[in-house]
Write a protein that binds this DNA or RNA. Sequence first.
DNA 1: TTATTCGTTCAATCGCAATTGAACGAAATG
DNA 2: CATTTCGTTCAATTGCGATTGAACGAATAA
Lengths: 163, 163
Amino acid sequence: MSDSLPNSRREFVETAGRLCQLLGLPRSTGQIYGLLYLSPQPLSLDDIAELLSISKASASTGTRQLVSWQAVKEVWVPGDRRDHFEALGDLRELLRAGYRNFFQPKFEKSQRKLDVLLSALEQDRKDGVITRDDYQFCRERLDGLGKLQDRVDKLLPLAEKFL
Amino acid sequence: MSDSLPNSRREFVETAGRLCQLLGLPRSTGQIYGLLYLSPQPLSLDDIAELLSISKASASTGTRQLVSWQAVKEVWVPGDRRDHFEALGDLRELLRAGYRNFFQPKFEKSQRKLDVLLSALEQDRKDGVITRDDYQFCRERLDGLGKLQDRVDKLLPLAEKFL
DNA sequence: TTATTCGTTCAATCGCAATTGAACGAAATG
DNA sequence: CATTTCGTTCAATTGCGATTGAACGAATAA
């Protein structure tokens, strides 16, 4: 990474990158957001690539991702033909949107999946692939999972409102 | 994966694997837990490796991870020298422990990091590396981040109790 | 004792996704 | 017009971490 950044911003960028990586997102995307978050002026793709020492291709894909998540917006800088970007500072809203776009769908899918599994289990029992005892055992375990899902299902809306 | 598993268990194992992968953990670890979660009898390392078509090395490291997380326990099976494993079924407790072992530490670390960043920013201002305006801007952004952390800090204990 | 059977460790391999460089089309410039 | 400047796309590369096979030590068995 370029050393033309003040230490504070450098460390922040690194931390943001790590956080994104932790969430299973490209590190560079987090770095870009971190850079823009602490950038008083909007930055162009070239600025971003230069300051982070990444390719313009990465900068391009990263910013487009961030724009699609509404974490960053394009701004017009008079007298400059290039696109410029600045971070949207409302982290709470960003977190909520992230929850809606990432966790929510996967969680709902897993709920549906559980029903499918219960059906498959039922089928296995009918087909005699598993003993009655095994069926009973698996049934209880799957029910336990369902209980947890219900709990989470009640918690999440509360958490989203609270944040 | 071996086809000697009933469909229901096969799908469950796959889903558990994906979930682990989603959380940044080895897929095989999730598969092992999934397998044991729906296994009426304790399984040996060889059973696990065989049923999941993974190496015994993976089975070994995976089970040890799971044991360390108290997601799985070793049980003694009379007349068999080998270690056997069975899943602990309390998913709620498992989730809480996961929160304590994974999220909690990283979150606390990020809180400390924020203080460090604020100091570094202060230093940059004193050194004249950044203008007064830039300092002001960054200061506000970092404060915004601090606000979010405080929110999360209040929410998490509530969520942990609720689950 | 020697020979097996287990479980673990570790260097090497593999797979996946992030990253890149080059090529391209579109838009602005002269 | 031709030329330059942008941003995007995509095939190729890279890097990282999960997975494996082989080697090892410890415990059991013969």
